Simulated scan of single mutants.
Amino acid sequence: MGSNQSSPTPPPAPAALTTASGAPAKPKPCCVCTDEKAKRDECMLFSNSSNPQEECVDLVTKYKDCMAGYGFKI
């Protein structure tokens, strides 16, 4: 990943995720970035490497970037 790449922008909140005032509600962390989380978990759990953290660093970074796009810091 280069420094010239920007964080992904989260999609607009569906109508069900809006507050009574019409402002978008913050989604639950379990409900966003599910594809990135699954790929990260699969890499970490099924890695044959002696250091899965190093092998899966790209997927972990993608997951963190996705979560940051929704306002979560991990």
Results as ranks from 00 to 15, higher is better:
residue 3 S to C: 03
residue 11 P to R: 07
residue 72 F to H: 03
residue 34 T to H: 11
residue 17 L to W: 08
residue 33 C to N: 07
residue 35 D to M: 15
residue 43 C to I: 11
residue 35 D to Y: 10
residue 19 T to M: 14
residue 71 G to M: 03
residue 64 K to H: 09
residue 53 Q to H: 02
residue 71 G to S: 06
residue 5 Q to T: 12
residue 27 P to M: 08
residue 68 A to V: 12
residue 18 T to L: 15
residue 22 G to H: 11
residue 33 C to S: 08
residue 49 S to T: 00
residue 8 P to S: 09
residue 34 T to N: 14
residue 69 G to C: 03
residue 59 L to R: 02
residue 6 S to T: 15
residue 5 Q to P: 01
residue 11 P to D: 12
residue 14 P to Q: 03
residue 70 Y to E: 06
residue 65 D to Y: 01
residue 35 D to L: 15
residue 10 P to F: 09
residue 4 N to F: 12
residue 16 A to G: 02
residue 61 T to A: 01
residue 8 P to Q: 06
residue 36 E to Y: 11
residue 54 E to K: 01
residue 56 C to Q: 01
residue 71 G to L: 08
residue 63 Y to V: 01
residue 67 M to K: 10
residue 59 L to V: 08
residue 54 E to R: 05
residue 67 M to Q: 03
residue 34 T to I: 15
residue 65 D to R: 07
residue 55 E to P: 02
residue 27 P to H: 11
residue 12 P to M: 12
residue 53 Q to F: 00
residue 61 T to K: 04
residue 8 P to V: 07
residue 10 P to K: 14
residue 63 Y to I: 05
residue 3 S to P: 05
residue 5 Q to W: 01
residue 20 A to R: 10
residue 40 R to G: 02
residue 1 M to F: 04
residue 29 P to F: 09
residue 61 T to C: 01
residue 56 C to S: 04
residue 74 I to F: 13
residue 19 T to N: 13
residue 20 A to S: 14
residue 31 C to P: 02
residue 42 E to V: 02
residue 67 M to T: 01
residue 17 L to C: 11
residue 28 K to A: 15
residue 20 A to M: 10
residue 24 P to Q: 04
residue 3 S to T: 04
residue 74 I to Q: 03
residue 50 S to C: 05
residue 66 C to W: 09
residue 49 S to L: 00
residue 2 G to F: 06
residue 6 S to K: 14
residue 17 L to K: 10
residue 49 S to P: 02
residue 32 V to W: 05
residue 67 M to A: 06
residue 56 C to M: 03
residue 27 P to A: 08
residue 46 F to P: 10
residue 3 S to W: 01
residue 4 N to V: 14
residue 38 A to Y: 14
residue 56 C to F: 09
residue 5 Q to H: 08
residue 74 I to T: 06
residue 20 A to N: 11
residue 70 Y to S: 03
residue 35 D to F: 13
residue 57 V to K: 08
residue 53 Q to L: 00
residue 58 D to C: 01
residue 22 G to C: 11
residue 34 T to Y: 10
residue 13 A to M: 12
residue 30 C to I: 12
residue 21 S to L: 06
residue 55 E to R: 00
residue 68 A to H: 14
residue 31 C to D: 15
residue 65 D to Q: 11
residue 26 K to T: 15
residue 63 Y to G: 02
residue 44 M to N: 06
residue 68 A to E: 12
residue 67 M to P: 05
residue 52 P to Q: 09
